[in-house]
Design a binder for these strands. Sequence first.
DNA 1: GTTTCATGTAACTTATGTAGTTACGATTCG
DNA 2: CGAATCGTAACTACATAAGTTACATGAAAC
Lengths: 124, 124
Amino acid sequence: MTSDKLAECLHTNPVVVRRTMGLLREAGIVTSDRGHSGGWRIAVDLNTVTLRQLHSALGEPAFFAMGNRNETPECLVEQAVNAALDDTFIKAEALLLERFSEITLADLAADFSRRYAEQRKQGR
Amino acid sequence: MTSDKLAECLHTNPVVVRRTMGLLREAGIVTSDRGHSGGWRIAVDLNTVTLRQLHSALGEPAFFAMGNRNETPECLVEQAVNAALDDTFIKAEALLLERFSEITLADLAADFSRRYAEQRKQGR
DNA sequence: GTTTCATGTAACTTATGTAGTTACGATTCG
DNA sequence: CGAATCGTAACTACATAAGTTACATGAAAC
């Protein structure tokens, strides 16, 4: 699929698509071809790609909105707060990563197919 | 403590302090007094205030950086992704809220005192 | 009662990060 | 060759949060 087509599907811009897909290509998850009949193609079995791999490929963006903390503050109050939160956030992140590594693109594809069949059955 | 003094401690601006502290006042956690020898005062026992209450008082800001999802998308792919993520994020949020409700300001104060004593012992 | 010191709050400015856009070069296929 | 497509740099637009200014309101000190 071309960047233009993907951008249309995602309601965004072809360049944004290329930027993001480029990261997936660096991780070996997709390939791209230039020129006529070029575009993006999945390079691996959907069963082998997990959300965790995608997250990693995309640069491990922060899970938490409160992650903008100074990790080595001089302030003792800040240190105490960090100590209290670190443990909590580390556990929550571990939980998220674990779940992410359990979900494959094949799972999502299967769920999509189910929803698609359901929608057709209802005559929409 | 005055907003000016707090702003200095927090390396921010007095108006920002008032905005935030105002939310805590609405929740009954602090009081404010105008005029001479005015400022902010804690209104409750530190043992009774949890991080969860603070979070709630501050308007329950989002925990997750990936929370900007359309909750009722037409797109079936989006629906499938949401279904996969919702469960995960709900569990993680529950974990965070649970931990937040276990941590009191008294806990933080105690940890601060410990750190302060430690620092003094080391002659800093 | 006037002065001084505070908060309360509206309005505006600044900073930051992300997404979007334009432009054009590089490459591939027909 | 020429059309299609990605690669990428550079710029713009936008949204959000923080910072700032300004001034009104209220309370204590003298």
